[in-house]
């Protein structure tokens, strides 16, 4: 046993038997200690905490600052006329700097029905309105869209189309590692670009020769398009 121990210590002594080599070895060890200490200090005092912070999900309150830009057109449709009205998203609406297109609301107003009071036998015309599925970048497949509607009771027709994925205008909570990542779902460009096409069909209902006024065979229809723009901001949830 003692012999074996001697061989081990002899081997170690032999390895460290040259003074010059030991000096270089010692210098190397000092360099390792200095570099290692600096590395560990920087890592433990800042970099590690930053990395952990960056990797840890936190709660964020996503808030939408919204604004609406609208355009109205009023045109006359003839009986049984089907016509498509086009709205150019980049020309017809004022897009504020830094905002994105969230959704589009369309309201179709029939002709003012006030005359119905003076002409009690007059009937409301049948109007149908459709948002035509085209190249406009939007969530065409979203179940909550209302792409077509019709009415024959002098009521307005409401249509809507979601353009930005997931946007409903409601502030909400989200989990993300930092503000940047929390806002990533709300920074996608390219949605709501193209031409909005609305097809209107008119079917005039009239009672011949009964009312005091002459038979009408057209109707003035007003289309109001409201584009909802949004800009999201994130604040750390408490």
């Amino acid at each position: 046993m003692g012999d074996n121990d001697n061989h081990f210590t002899d081997a170690i002594s032999e390895i460290f038997s040259i003074k010059e080599a030991n000096i270089v070895g010692s210098i190397s060890l000092v360099v390792i200690l200095i570099c290692g200490s600096i590395n560990v200090y920087e890592w433990t005092q800042g970099e590690y905490a930053e990395a952990v912070d960056a990797a840890t999900d936190e709660g964020w309150w996503i808030e939408f600052n919204t604004t609406i830009s609208s355009k109205t057109i009023t045109e006359t449709w003839q009986h049984e006329e089907v016509r498509t009205v086009e709205f150019y998203m980049d020309e017809d609406f004022q897009i504020p700097e830094g905002y994105l297109v969230g959704m589009i609301d369309i309201t179709i107003f029939p002709e003012d029905p006030e005359f119905a009071v003076t002409d009690p036998v007059s009937q409301c015309d049948a109007i149908s309105g459709d948002i035509i599925v085209n190249e406009l970048t939007a969530q065409w497949g979203y179940d909550g869209n209302n792409l077509s509607g019709q009415d024959s009771s002098c009521e307005t027709i409401e249509l809507d189309l979601r353009t930005y994925p997931g946007f409903d205008g409601v502030d909400h909570n989200a989990q993300a590692v930092n503000e940047f990542q929390a806002l990533i779902p709300w920074t996608g460009l390219g949605w709501g670009e193209g031409v909005l096409e609305i097809q209107i069909e008119l079917d005039v209902n009239s009672v011949d020769q009964i009312g005091p006024f002459a038979q009408d065979d057209d109707e003035e229809i007003t289309i109001l398009v409201e584009v909802h723009f949004f800009k999201a901001s994130a604040a750390m949830a408490e």
Binding site: C35, E42, W43, A51, A55
Partner: peptide, 28 residues
């Protein structure tokens, strides 16, 4: 350390504090 920080976020399993600190000695 810039890579170690990145892996902390990117990797499926991040290295522990002890492990990553020892890595910083190892690199020296």
């Amino acid at each position: 350390s810039v890579y170690l920080s990145r892996w902390r976020v990117e990797d499926f399993v991040a290295q522990s504090f002890l492990s990553s600190s020892l890595d910083m000695v190892a690199v020296a």
